[in-house]
Simulated scan of single mutants.
Amino acid sequence: MAKVLGLDVGDATIGVAVSDSLGWTAQGIMTIRRRNVNTDLSSLRKLIREHNVSEVVVGLPVTMNGRPDGQTHKIIRFVSILHEAFHLPIYTWDERFSTIEANKALDAGKVNRKKRAEVIDKIAATIILQGYLDNKNEKLAVLEG
């Protein structure tokens, strides 16, 4: 079955997570170091093929009051590029608290600063994707129930 890819896109890195084939759980798989759009797309294309991805969820940064800012517009442009390159459904998901949650998880695990920098984006992508999957599955349960 097809999977969902979750992305936490920043200026320097892209955290990547993928769902299980049933679409219930998210697992962080890697952090891509960004170089340029073509290299980013090549890396993502490989992951989409490897994991049989049918849709992509991208964390959408907004201000605490839910309004767009400069980073929001960058991500919307990137989402447009992804859609054009891959011809897959590309969704955005509010990522306001994903980095905070990721840091709390790393604090609980007593992860040191060096290791934290290596995994924070991957964990944020996992949180973004899990939120999307939980919401999607809740809606399906209501429709079925």
Rank of each mutant, 00 (worst) to 15 (best):
A2C: 14
A2N: 14
K3W: 00
V4A: 01
V4N: 02
V4E: 00
L5N: 01
L7Q: 07
L7D: 06
L7S: 08
D8V: 04
D8P: 04
A12K: 15
I14M: 09
G15P: 03
G15D: 01
V16G: 04
A17M: 02
A17R: 03
A17V: 05
A17Y: 00
V18G: 00
S19I: 00
D20R: 05
D20M: 06
D20P: 07
L22G: 10
G23L: 00
T25G: 11
A26R: 02
Q27I: 12
I32P: 03
R34H: 05
R35H: 10
N36P: 06
N36S: 11
T39R: 15
T39W: 15
S42W: 15
S43Q: 14
L44P: 02
R45K: 13
K46G: 15
L47K: 05
R49E: 15
E50N: 11
V53F: 01
E55P: 05
V56L: 13
V56P: 07
V57W: 00
V58Y: 03
V58R: 02
P61T: 04
V62M: 11
T63V: 03
M64Q: 11
N65P: 07
N65I: 12
N65W: 13
G70S: 13
G70L: 14
Q71M: 14
T72P: 06
T72A: 04
H73G: 11
K74N: 04
K74P: 06
I76D: 09
I76G: 04
I76S: 09
R77L: 09
S80R: 15
S80W: 15
S80D: 15
A85L: 05
H87S: 12
H87C: 13
L88V: 10
L88E: 09
I90A: 07
T92K: 04
T92H: 06
W93L: 12
D94C: 06
E95I: 10
E95C: 09
S98R: 00
I100P: 15
N103L: 13
K104P: 13
A105R: 14
A105V: 12
A105H: 14
L106N: 04
L106S: 00
K110C: 14
K110I: 09
R113N: 12
K114Q: 13
K114E: 08
K114I: 09
K115P: 12
K115G: 13
K115R: 11
A117D: 12
A124H: 01
A124C: 05
I128F: 01
L129K: 01
Q130L: 06
Q130H: 02
Q130D: 05
G131L: 03
Y132T: 03
Y132N: 00
D134V: 05
D134K: 08
N135R: 09
N135G: 07
N137V: 06
N137H: 01
E138N: 10
K139C: 01
E144R: 10
G145N: 15
G145L: 14
